[in-house]
Each structure stands twice: as structure tokens, then as C-alpha cells.
């Protein structure tokens, strides 16, 4: 990576580094990142935990019949996820509700916290989302085999299709089953990464005087869009988890 001198000059004028915000850096000096190093990712994961606890635990400490504002937010989220799990997986999926709720509240709060200026978006990293998706994938697959035994494989054997087509369909089903964690994780990370990078690109353009109003307007617009997107992505991640869970519990449907 040879940087020419005029490139350095260009950089000073138009400093667009959309990927800088995703750098994982140790917080307390040094440059080696070991397994237990406290990094900015660790910091923002901790902030995510604190915000989630503030919302769901401190917000509900009144236990009021007529809820306060924070309590009603917590209740709305609770009822929303509860209904989602109940509608998609059915009554027998409700015992996995705490896991799905934890997943949702983590992704939602991490996404929203990541929208703060100068923050680090933990969910924009493949490492994080892939871990989440793999947890879901492994858990759902193991659960499917534990609950249904070998008949879990009927998920891949489409009995409604003509017999000649079934092996081909089974192959496609198996492939799509194993692509699930990939798309599941990349969807979330990609959305986060793309939105934040676009904001940074426009922020870089804001340096140039004559387009800065347009750039700042674009940042506002993209930011509004991103606020919507982070919530929808948390919702989508959770609802797909519910769908996969339903497949594990009732593979024949």
C-alpha cells in the first residue's frame, strides 16, 4: 500500500475514511488484541448491557399498574416479542421466549447505541453477528434433532412435490438450510455497516464548502432512515430466529 504524496494531500482536503469507525482498538494503550483485552468493542458491549438493564430493569422498578413512560416502553417490547414468539412458533415455543427476548433486546440496544455519534457499532462486525447467527443455528438444529429425532430430516424432504423432484428439492433445501446462518448474520452486519459507512461518506463530503449543506441534509436523511433500519433489522433477526425455531419444533409444516 504505497501512498503517494499527492494522495496524502488529497486526504487532508477530502478525508473520507468510512471504515475507520469499525476499527477495533485497545482502550488502554498497546496494539495487541488478545482474547481478554478491553477494546472499544468491549466498552460498547458494556454500554449496551447497561442500557438494556436501564430500560428493562430500572425502567420497570415502579411495577406500576398505570405504567410510567420507561415502563410502558419495556412492556411494549415485552408484549411485542411475546406475541411474535407465540404467533410464529405456537404455544410450545413460549418456553424459549427468554432466549429470543435476550437476543432481541441485545441487538436492538446495540444497534441504537451504535447510532450515537462517535460510537462503535458492535453489530456491524461479522464476528458478532456470525456468533449470534451460529448460536441460533446450532441451537435450532440440536433442538430439532432432540425434539423430533430423525424425523427432523423431513424438513428437507418435501412430501408435497413429485417423487422425481424430491432429491433435487432436498439438495436445495439442505443448501438453503446451511446458508441460513450466513444470510442471517450478513444481513444484520451488512445493514449496519452500509448505513454507517454511507453516513461517514457524506460526512467526509461536508468538508467541501459548496456541497456541505447538501451533505449535511443527506446525513440527516440517512440518519433518519438508519434509525428505522436498525429497529427493523433487530425485528427481522428475531423474527427469522422464531421462524427457524418453528421449523425445529414442527418440521413437517
Amino acid at each position: 500500500m504505497a501512498i503517494e504524496s499527492d494522495a496524502v494531500e488529497q486526504e487532508l482536503e477530502l478525508a473520507i475514511h468510512p471504515m475507520d469507525q469499525f476499527l477495533v482498538k485497545p482502550l488502554f494503550g498497546g496494539s495487541d488484541i488478545g482474547m481478554f483485552t478491553i477494546t472499544n468493542a468491549t466498552l460498547w458491549l458494556g454500554i449496551t448491557v447497561l442500557c438494556a438493564i436501564a430500560l428493562m430493569v430500572l425502567g420497570t422498578r415502579g411495577r406500576a399498574i398505570v405504567p410510567s413512560r420507561s415502563q410502558s416502553i419495556a412492556e411494549v417490547i415485552y408484549v411485542f416479542i411475546y406475541k411474535m414468539v407465540e404467533d410464529i412458533t405456537g404455544k410450545d415455543g413460549l418456553k424459549y421466549f427468554p432466549y429470543i427476548f435476550s437476543l432481541f433486546i441485545f441487538i436492538l440496544v446495540a444497534n441504537v447505541v451504535g447510532l450515537l455519534p462517535a460510537s462503535f457499532t458492535t453489530t456491524s462486525h461479522i464476528a458478532v453477528t456470525a456468533t449470534l447467527a451460529l448460536i441460533v443455528f446450532v441451537a435450532v438444529t440440536v433442538l430439532g434433532f432432540v425434539k423430533n429425532g430423525a424425523s427432523f430430516l423431513s424438513l428437507f424432504w418435501v412430501s408435497a412435490a413429485p417423487l422425481a423432484l424430491r432429491p433435487i428439492l432436498a439438495l436445495i433445501e439442505v443448501i438453503s438450510y446451511f446458508v441460513r446462518p450466513v444470510s442471517h448474520s450478513i444481513r444484520l452486519a451488512g445493514n449496519m455497516m452500509a448505513g454507517h459507512a454511507v453516513i461517514k461518506v457524506f460526512a467526509g463530503f461536508a468538508v467541501v464548502t459548496f456541497i456541505s449543506p447538501a451533505a449535511i441534509g443527506a446525513i440527516v436523511a440517512i440518519y433518519a432512515l438508519e434509525t428505522l433500519v436498525v429497529c427493523i433489522q433487530a425485528y427481522v433477526f428475531t423474527i427469522l430466529t422464531c421462524v427457524y425455531l418453528k421449523d425445529a419444533l414442527h418440521p413437517s409444516h
Binding site: R187, I239, L240
Partner: peptide, 26 residues
Amino acid sequence: ATMFIGIAFAEALGIFSFLVALLLMF
């Protein structure tokens, strides 16, 4: 909910192309 699942699947493929672009660039 079904609509959002559909959106998610449609969008995932777009995200894949975005990913391909990023991988090629970086």
C-alpha cells in the same frame, strides 16, 4: 410479519452484492 420475512429474504441478496463489492474493494 410474513411481509417482513419476505423483505428480509429479498434484502439479504442485495446485502450479498454489497458484501461482494466491499470484499473486492478491500
